[in-house]
Amino acid sequence: MRYVRLLGIFYKYSFLSELEYRVEFLANVFMNVFWLAWAIVSVAIFFLHTDRLGDWSWPEVLMVVALFTLFSGVMEALLRPNVGAVLDQIRDGTFDFVLTKPVNAQFIASLRNIVIWRLSDVIIGLALIVYALRQMDIVPTMGQIALFVLMLFAATAIVYSLWLMMVSLAFWFVKLDNFTELFYGFYEAGRYPVTIYRGIIRAVLTFVVPIAFVTTFPASALLGRIDQTTTMIGFALAIGLFVISNRVWTFALKHYSSASS
């Protein structure tokens, strides 16, 4: 309960500090629209030559693009300004202030900030999903929608946990920017349905860096073309990674060396 109240306060002040920069706010909305257009174009280009990508039709692929956009919103609004910012805080030493507060450090480090305008991506993504479903004349059942929402949460948990483990490494190695870039590289691969990849790459994207669970599988859930095993693996992966990342984080804290003043 206390933590819920804290969240409210954190987000209020996060929002307030963003309002300080009105021009940046507008520029960012403009950027979002641009990136969405780019995401659609980069997929549409294939459909100039073919009607199907793997076994996915144009509106179905559009669903994956929509999820890619939606999840970019989640990442940029909630993950990058928090777990992503820990790296900088460790380097400039302000992480000390997180650790000296009488609140769970993982909680502050993971949820302290929100970049509210980035949630516009979530809305744009959802709108695109509705549009794609209309194109196919599909109306998902309540069950499919519920599963879709759950899979989104699982996806968030998966990406969050991977990121947290990566950040934990920074307690030893301090400078890890390239690592974050590598992660973004993998995430980029998620803009296409994972089934268009073959062999090893597909296995990597499903199990090693499980981007498939972030875009492809939630889309499949809405389209009613996901099997139970995949769903279960997704949830197991989310819970498992979450628990492991928490352990890694706790262990890493003991090795924190705090940048000198």
Partner: peptide
């Protein structure tokens, strides 16, 4: 720490005080 700051750069100090009031 004289060389590190916890105050939110973009907001008046009173806002950081209120956040700390909630944290503590």
């Amino acid at each position: 720490m004289g060389q590190k700051q916890q105050l939110n750069w973009d907001l008046p100090a009173i806002e950081t005080f209120l956040v700390n009031a909630a944290i503590y």
